[in-house]
Design a protein around this nucleic acid. Structure first.
Lengths: 258, 258
DNA sequence: TCAAAAGTGTTAACGTTACACCCATGT
DNA sequence: ACATGGGTGTAACGTTAACACTTTTGA
């Protein structure tokens, strides 16, 4: 969506192609330099940053819509994607926005009953992606994008800070039942990497030895005969996930602590 | 909604009051005679049973809508109510239904573009209620209601069997993090009652002694100096929840097995 | 007095936690 | 050589899991 023609068509006729009143807002998690990050877009004409959301096509299955929206923004397919909550309580999402406000911000002429101005619920999804493989597409509405450390998320549009909070919370709870990491880390990774990842998600320190013991005891990771030289005094061993056990743990679910 | 006038108004003008394309479908759990049950409605003119769903008013917060719908059907307020998933993948929910089909089933004249015929996503909620306190309201669309053992749920409309399945799964997972029972049991209950409840939700046997020990050790329940005579050779002690610890466990969340 | 249900403790196995020193490498 | 980060084992503790008999009550 880059030409003015396309944008005008979307704004004025989009409701024929998309379902009104419902959007999908993905929280995209990536991991880089020992930090858990999320991908945010800067919307043109608006102050804040926001999630890379989108709408559902009228005959498109919901999960397919979520995948499509993610792919449009990040050029990634086959990522880990999971629905976690519907947001429909915030006053921002109830009071319809005015056409005037829209005109001022986007410089687009819209009627008062335009579909984009009406109340819209948001279905929250979170995605776990390999940071290094993401390439972001910007379009007419977005002027910039940036990865933000989850500890330093800026004020977001509407109630989207709440969306991010809840995504983190869900991730944190889920890690007690299912392994996480396959989608966030490169194929080969070091113990310190996955160790810090888990600490970051859980927001607490985990004993180095016990953590490694646990993952190996569960059969989730295996040591490779390679090391990676990453600077002074540092050449940790590489590990990779044991796909079979990992998949099984994902599906069956487990209950344990770290 | 009982008079023909009200029904016609809802069918033809409901989209002015309610958001189209989104419904709320509550799975209402109750517990009676050692069985976990859900409340289903028989829709007039349709073969199957279904969930007591409803729509969201245009300016109504989502969670308020869910509470209102539940109260309209069960006359209960202040119950435990939780969102768990949005359903939008099933082909039933994508193919728009035809006006002819609607006419045949409900004997109502509607246009092809009537809001009730269009694709509708469903937001799944589950409620935990005190079985003995529910009184069900039927209306024009519903001709009967019935509590069903979760082990014997009949074929439901659309993809609602999937909704029930997912509700149970969510409940089962949640019980590892938060206590459940306060909303399902009467104020005073016996050990065998809560024991069977947990066994039913988890779908597996739990050691009698260990189970009681655990709940008492966690400070969730306390023994009363009363017994209940419930038949031959049976007069178990009554217990009640320790509200403070219970609430705290609900909010903080815990990780444990049973 | 007999049948049915409720109540009650102990022990062994297992998993979790706490804890510190050596080794390899690059500067 | 030294500074930094990575790697590794053991012991105490707490939790879980397995197990059966006694008591009460009503018929």
């Amino acid at each position: 969506m880059n030409t003015l023609e396309e944008v005008n068509d979307f704004v004025h006729n989009g409701h024929q192609e998309y379902l009104p009143h419902i959007s999908i807002d993905p929280v995209i998690f990536g991991y880089h330099q020992q930090q858990l990050k999320i991908l945010l877009l800067k919307w043109k004409g608006l102050e804040g940053w926001g999630l890379p959301g989108g709408f559902i096509k009228r005959r498109e299955p919901l999960s397919q819509a979520a995948n499509r929206i993610l792919q449009e923004k990040t050029s990634l397919s086959n990522l880990y994607l999971q629905q976690f909550h519907v947001f429909g309580d915030s006053p921002y999402r109830i009071r319809e926005r005015s056409a005037r406000e829209y005109k001022e911000k986007f410089n687009l002429d819209v009627d008062d009953d335009n579909w984009l101005l009406q109340r819209t619920l948001s279905i929250g999804y979170f995605a776990l992606v390999d940071y290094s493989k993401v390439t972001v597409q910007t379009d007419f509405f977005t002027e910039d994008y940036q990865w933000w450390d989850v500890k330093e998320v800026p004020p977001l549009l509407f109630d989207q800070n709440e969306v991010v909070e809840k995504a983190l919370l869900t991730l944190r709870r889920q890690i007690y039942h299912q392994p996480i990491g396959y989608n966030l880390l490169p194929e080969k990774f070091t113990l310190p990497e996955i160790h810090t990842l888990y600490e970051t998600i859980l927001g607490k320190e985990l004993d180095q030895r016990n953590f490694a013991k646990k993952l190996i005891a569960l059969g989730l990771i295996q040591k490779l005969n390679e090391t990676r030289a990453i600077g002074a005094h540092r050449s940790p061993f590489l590990y990779q996930f044991e796909k079979e056990n990992y998949e099984q743990a994902l599906q069956v679910g487990i209950v344990h602590t770290y």
